[in-house]
Write a protein that binds this DNA or RNA. Sequence first.
DNA 1: AAGGACTTTGACAACCGTTTTCATTTTGGC
DNA 2: GCCAAAATGAAAACGGTTGTCAAAGTCCTT
Lengths: 129, 129
Amino acid sequence: MTTRRDAVHDTLRGSSGFRSAQDVYAEMRLHGAKIGLTTVYRALQALADGGKVDVLRTDDGESVYRACATDAHHHHLVCRKCGQTVEVAGPAVERWAETVGSEHGFTEITHTVEVFGTCSSCSTPSRTA
Amino acid sequence: MTTRRDAVHDTLRGSSGFRSAQDVYAEMRLHGAKIGLTTVYRALQALADGGKVDVLRTDDGESVYRACATDAHHHHLVCRKCGQTVEVAGPAVERWAETVGSEHGFTEITHTVEVFGTCSSCSTPSRTA
DNA sequence: AAGGACTTTGACAACCGTTTTCATTTTGGC
DNA sequence: GCCAAAATGAAAACGGTTGTCAAAGTCCTT
């Protein structure tokens, strides 16, 4: 059954940012779910393989996952403080990547584009109190 | 002394693609260098911190390094077969990232952009014999 | 319902790249 | 030559991730 996998997917949907496998595991346990870390990893991989969630790597090599609102190709604008993420399209970037690639004789072009910044909530100094 | 660090830097310069710390270490040992893995890691970090080399993460979480021809901000077009890398500029992308970020109220925008493809040498089928 | 084959699960160990530790060596200054 | 500070590197520690494998669950057939 895919019950566990769905549970993992649901947990991910409950968050607006990217979460690590261990985050998801911890949260599920907090909410009383009976699930093992191994299963969370497997569910996340399956979800990622099926294009149900997006994956990216943090600077320290951790894989983080996020349930995307759309199946279409898109990129992310991630707040480096709170992790809040906005899905953004970048047609211009897609074209640029293709162009740059073919100019140099490369084929089967793919690309990774992620934008980081500090969101308005986090950039308001007096908001931390 | 920075002798070891220079040696690491030189080794990196001898390659046209991104190399992992362990790759660099292995190659240096092959060429008879007396150096420890720890030192290679430290040298690579120092080089990266000083902006002397570019770092990125492979899909499996390994850090790979490359000696850049320029200190200026640029991106990479990497062959997914042989690793050959071309440095590319993308002013349009820089602007796009800024625009997208500020449209959503984000500040201090940074971005990661890498383009992957198959280079002309690697895409020629009969070249493998 | 019972039996059996196949799948899923999860505790735990193994992995692997990376970082830390710490004793030793090297370097530079006096 | 001597001492203090920095660099080195072997080995241990670390941390996220993956593999192992036996136990549990599921589904189909009888």
